[in-house]
Simulated scan of single mutants.
Amino acid sequence: MQTAIFVAGGIALVLGALGGATSPITSWYDDLKKPRWQPPKWLFGPAWGVILACAATAAVLGWNASTGSAARTDLLIAFGVNAVFFIGWSPLFFVARRPDWAMIEWVFLWASVAAGTLVVARVSDLGGLFMVPYLAWVSFAGVLNRAIVIRNRPFAGRVAG
């Protein structure tokens, strides 16, 4: 049990660090037209910290509730696929400065969170509940991403320097 906690917690910390490192808030971002209902910039880091802690908790609860290797394999696949899409969104939005591409990638990110929620919930009701904040935040992020794209397009041809 302790191993699962350390592994899940460590992965959450690494993902949080990668997300932060690939999300430079520059004048490019500040100059984007954003909706009034966007949360303040300072909220995103703490929100992701809580969300990743919840996801790590869900992973541990799912791992500990799994009764066979097939269920654990499903958990590893679901969280591994989600990690790939989690890591992919920020570089598209902030580094490539392509919120339009990030919005397309968001579809896959959202689907991976939803699938992970279902995989965890199959073995642990409480674990499934711990995934709900992640699913809610990524859903909100998609709406925000779309609002930014609509207010600022086109992005093609803009210099990302």
Rank of each mutant, 00 (worst) to 15 (best):
M1R: 07
M1L: 13
I11R: 04
L15T: 07
L15M: 14
A17Y: 15
L18I: 15
G19V: 06
S23C: 07
S23Q: 10
P24K: 12
S27Y: 00
D31F: 01
P35D: 08
W37P: 10
Q38E: 14
P40I: 08
W42L: 10
A53T: 11
T57A: 13
G62F: 02
S66D: 05
T67P: 02
T67H: 12
S69M: 08
A70D: 13
R72L: 05
R72I: 05
I77R: 10
I77A: 14
V81Q: 07
F86R: 02
F86I: 05
I87R: 05
V95R: 15
V95L: 14
R98H: 08
R98Q: 06
P99T: 00
W101P: 01
A102H: 07
M103K: 08
V107N: 03
W110G: 00
A111W: 10
A111F: 13
V113C: 14
G116P: 07
A121I: 00
R122V: 02
V123D: 01
G128E: 04
L129T: 00
M131R: 01
L135R: 00
S139H: 13
S139W: 11
V143A: 14
N145F: 06
R146P: 00
A147F: 06
V149G: 05
V149H: 04
R151P: 04
N152F: 07
A156M: 01
A156H: 03
